[in-house]
Design a protein around this nucleic acid. Structure first.
Lengths: 230, 230
DNA sequence: ACAAAAGTGTTGACTTTACACCCATGG
DNA sequence: CCATGGGTGTAAAGTCAACACTTTTGT
């Protein structure tokens, strides 16, 4: 039948593309930006380090699939993820045409415990971004794009709230900005700018961060708005 | 065989997602932002208006697929397109799970000739964005997102060059900005800002745009940079 | 008492906004 | 000659950038 023949032709032309999600999960640890990598147990790219991800199920949203993969491969739950890009080169995967929808996540390393082995991975590690070697697939490209996305995200206060859920000191926030954006800020102007957003309040408490003198502890106001820091 | 069974299971779980591209092609015509819609000839959504798009071939990049669909359904070639988003709701298409990768394009309406009928479409029309009715699929949502993307894009001079390849007057550019961003600018300040970018030069020519007094015709300098207008 | 980081205020440079008048053309 | 939109300059306000000294704690 003509219709059936067309269907088959269409199937060959159109419907043989796999979709997976890849998430770059970042943390900032004492002024160093690190990304969470997992070591693959299976082919392809067996024994290589890779970003966290995997195929999307037919009946789940992309974001759901990304979160499920994160949980399966690292044990992390409740990571806040943001869309980063799409990778669609024809030869990305040696197995079949795969399109990657990529995400960026950021977590507080102190609040989080990563599984070192799962059904698909035999190790997991927080790697400083300037120490990342050759990764599986095109994950090095994905990571570069993710870093760009992270730079854009960090200037919106929304992601800051996720990074410092329990309060923060201003020098601590400044170090995070400097690490991610790769440039330094004047201490006085940074403080002024952050306070001028009127999104954070002094808790009255103090905490030791890096210096000898304790720093003031701030927290986000309840009412949430999404202002741009720079 | 266990392997084969797993493959089949995986196929059912994973590999039954279609990928298509949807492009919102905009123009600005005398201060009115319009989007190019086509009328569908076939099911699903037969006889409804829709954005331009269709399934991606297995062996082409997403961007290539988007440009091919644009050509097939409107006759337009060489449209400059920019990534806008991803739409992945499970019930987007009544036929099968489809993921849409969406693009934004912008063209000079005077330089362009749109086919009114093609193999898949029976009509095409530039519709002012506030006159757009119910579209096929989730194209209304895609269009809203595309307008957001357009607002972000318009402040980079890159897209400006595409819109005014053959020179422009400053009031004309200002009208375009006002139409897309939905707000007005002071005439003197707008001119000052645009000139301060040092990307455009006075051609010495004049042209009638809207006013009674002829406006100066400007063009982009050869050396191209990508500066932000606001 | 000193080293190390935290906290604070002022000034000048720059950018943005507000605003009023004259000019060239068509009718 | 008048109505319409185009072209120009200046001053005030606001934002950003540069910069030095004092405070608190640990050793």
């Amino acid at each position: 039948m003509q219709g059936e023949k067309n269907m088959r032709k269409n199937f060959e032309l159109y419907k043989n593309i796999g979709v997976h999600t890849i998430t770059s999960i970042f943390t900032v640890d004492k002024g160093v930006v690190k990304v969470l990598l997992v070591k693959r147990k299976n082919e392809p790219f067996k024994d290589m380090w890779a970003l966290v991800g995997g195929a999307v199920y037919n009946n789940e949203l992309l974001r759901e699939g990304a979160l499920r993969e994160i949980k399966e491969k690292t044990g992390l739950e409740g990571v806040k993820i943001y869309e980063s890009g799409i990778f669609d080169k024809l030869d990305r995967s040696p197995i079949m045409r795969m399109i990657a929808v990529t995400y960026v996540g950021i977590v507080d390393i102190n609040k989080v415990n990563v599984l070192s082995e799962t059904i698909n991975t035999e190790d997991a590690s927080w790697v400083p971004i300037d120490k990342v070697k050759r990764l599986a697939y095109d994950h090095n490209d994905i990571l570069l794009k993710a870093l760009d996305t992270l730079k854009e995200l960090i200037v919106s206060t929304d992601i800051l709230k996720g990074l410092f859920p329990n309060g923060f000191t201003i020098p601590e926030v400044q170090k995070t900005y400097e690490a991610i954006l790769g440039k330094e800020f004047d201490r006085r102007n940074f403080r002024k700018k952050l306070l001028s957003l009127r999104l954070i309040t002094d808790t009255g408490k103090e905490i030791l961060f890096e210096g000898k003198r304790p720093a003031k502890l701030y927290k986000f106001d309840k009412r949430k708005e999404n202002k741009s820091v720079f």
